[in-house]
Nucleic acid binder design. Structure first.
Lengths: 204, 204
DNA sequence: GATAAAAATCGACACTGTGTAGACTTTCTG
DNA sequence: CAGAAAGTCTACACAGTGTCGATTTTTATC
């Protein structure tokens, strides 16, 4: 978290280490795409970032910490975008907008989102990050369902529980589709939107 | 795959190795529950099965192979049960029956099913097994949707695509719920059932 | 029930990847 | 420009994996 002193930070010199840190995360992301988490070794990351393993351990305590930082970086991006979403009163529009945004997120960050999901079990910190992200979605979906007339509450046929199930549906469907192609992602989005609409009682 | 010779296998002596093989898989399952995949070492499994690492490698070539065999054993169980399910003409009944069966499967085999899902990425063989299992579900859901009057086809609002999304919804929802408790699993089931029903146009 | 082939087991070894330690060099800062 | 902080490196100790050849146990057969 840089930039602590709001006053007195004329240009914030940008340490050499900050550049390296970014290089490490960038390399990690590239390797994740190339060979996947398991095959990727700490040595690989260091080499890609132009340093030795020893030096890398100055920045991060382990491979898991590197990936956690990478996920955190991406996930913060998601949260920002989530906050900056325009609110609509018409549920149909809200749903369409949300799905559109979701497609964009998965197009841009699919790799990291899949990685986060995969490692949620293994790496508790990543699990927390993703859980928080999912909660944002669930909250948003719940709000839309309620505005569409679904009764609020946590019973199986009430908004909260339904939102959770719909969230998992979207997560998993996009997870798989994003491994295939942009077209599949678009199709997946339309299917999810359709199910969301009918669940909200907004049959066409 | 034992029992090749339908004729001439009076009692099928049951080699010592068959017992060991089972012991290995049983131990593996127990350890998976205790410490999880990553923390579980080949040495642990061997020790639990009462042999040394060296001996274990006589049976399985790697930790992944052991777990793959374990998943295969469980998944075959699922397929069997899947085949043995009574067919109903009433979609509502079919959905209720399917969800009931799914709850039972996750209650009994949740650990292994979660493991299979987690390792689908990493271990191609497990990925195949799980993909096949999911396909069975998708096919079944598709059939029910069509019988309920949803148009057949792969377009986003047609039976096949919807079935896939619903399948992922159920998978993910049960995945999470089965980590919590039987009660959560039951609630999750009811939520999924409700969404499935409305998606099929069977509003109450 | 003796015996030879097949099945099963073991301990030791080589290898790969991880994480740590201490010495050394570069970069800041007053 | 001197001392501190930040960054880097090489070497090492350690965990776990998978392989090999020697050895023992089981099993089938006469």
């Amino acid at each position: 978290m840089p930039g602590h002193h709001p006053a007195r930070s004329r240009r914030t010199t940008e340490r050499k280490g900050d550049v390296r840190e970014r290089a490490i995360l960038d390399t990690c992301e590239a390797l994740l795409a190339q060979k996947g988490y398991d095959a990727m070794t700490v040595g690989d990351i260091a080499q890609g970032a132009g340093i030795t393993r020893g030096a890398l351990y100055f920045y991060y305590g382990s491979k898991q910490e590197v990936v956690t930082a990478l996920v955190a970086r991406t996930v913060e991006h998601l949260w920002e975008r989530s906050r900056a979403t325009a609110q609509t009163d018409d549920p149909r529009q809200a749903i369409a907008a949300a799905m559109q945004r979701t497609v964009e997120l998965w197009n841009e960050h699919g790799l990291i989102m899949r990685t986060a999901i995969d490692l949620s079990l293994t790496v508790p910190e990543i699990g927390e990050l993703w859980k928080h992200t999912a909660d944002l979605f669930v909250t948003a979906i719940t709000a839309v369902l309620e505005r569409a007339g679904i009764q609020a509450g946590t019973e199986p046929d009430q908004a909260s529980a339904m939102a959770r199930a719909l969230c998992w549906m979207i997560e998993r469907t996009f997870y798989h589709a994003s491994q295939e192609s942009r077209e599949k992602l678009q199709e997946a989005s339309e299917t999810c939107e359709h199910i969301w609409l009918t669940s909200a009682g907004l049959t066409i």
